[in-house]
Computed example of a mutant assay.
Amino acid sequence: MDRLALSGVAITEAAFSGFQYYMLSKIGESFVLGLRTSLIGRLLRIPIREHDRRSTGDLISRFSNDTNSIKVALQLCAGNQHEN
């Protein structure tokens, strides 16, 4: 009976742990999506003279790299939180 109870506890813990990781990932992805949407909206409102000084591809690349860095940082935080 003890093995059955211990197995039940382990399965329950694994399910809750997986759910926690899923929710943290979903929140992180949602945050990054909102950030990217906001940044692209801002990019579209940049004055034309700014586009003359820098190529649009460079600006988008910079935004994409910055948001990917934030995404990786959030995933690392979620992973570290998941381990604790």
Rank of each mutant, 00 (worst) to 15 (best):
A14P: 00
R49H: 12
V32Q: 13
L59D: 00
D66R: 15
S38Q: 06
G79Q: 06
A14N: 03
L33A: 14
G8F: 13
L24C: 04
R36D: 06
G34A: 11
G28M: 02
R45K: 13
S17W: 10
L39K: 08
L76Q: 06
S55F: 11
A14F: 10
S55A: 06
R36V: 07
A10W: 07
L59E: 08
T37Y: 12
I46L: 15
E50A: 11
L44A: 14
T56E: 02
E13M: 04
L76T: 00
A5L: 12
A73P: 01
L39R: 05
D58S: 10
Q20W: 00
L4D: 13
I48L: 02
Y22Q: 09
L74Q: 02
S7V: 12
M23A: 08
A73V: 01
L4C: 15
F63T: 08
R54E: 15
K71C: 11
E13S: 05
E83F: 08
G18N: 01
S38M: 07
S55H: 10
S69D: 15
L76N: 07
L39N: 05
I11Q: 09
C77E: 15
L76Y: 00
I40C: 01
T67M: 07
G41D: 14
S25K: 02
L76S: 04
R42E: 08
G41V: 03
P47C: 03
E13L: 02
I60N: 03
I40P: 10
S69G: 13
G79V: 00
L44V: 11
Q81W: 04
L33E: 14
A15H: 06
E50N: 03
R62H: 12
D66C: 12
D58M: 07
Q75H: 14
R36S: 06
S25R: 07
N80C: 12
S55K: 06
G28A: 03
A5Q: 08
E13D: 01
N68V: 01
L43S: 07
I46A: 06
T67Q: 08
I11T: 09
L59I: 11
S69L: 13
G34M: 12
E29I: 15
R42K: 10
G8R: 12
E29H: 14
I48S: 05
S38W: 04
S55E: 04
L24G: 02
F16R: 02
T12A: 15
L39C: 02
V72Y: 05
S30C: 02
C77I: 09
G79W: 01
Y22E: 00
D58H: 08
E83H: 14
L4N: 10
N65S: 14
L43E: 06
S61H: 05
A73F: 01
S64F: 08
L44R: 15
L59R: 14
F31T: 04
L24Y: 00
L35S: 11
M23F: 04
A78W: 03
F16D: 11
Q81H: 00
I46E: 15
H51N: 09
S30G: 06
T12M: 14
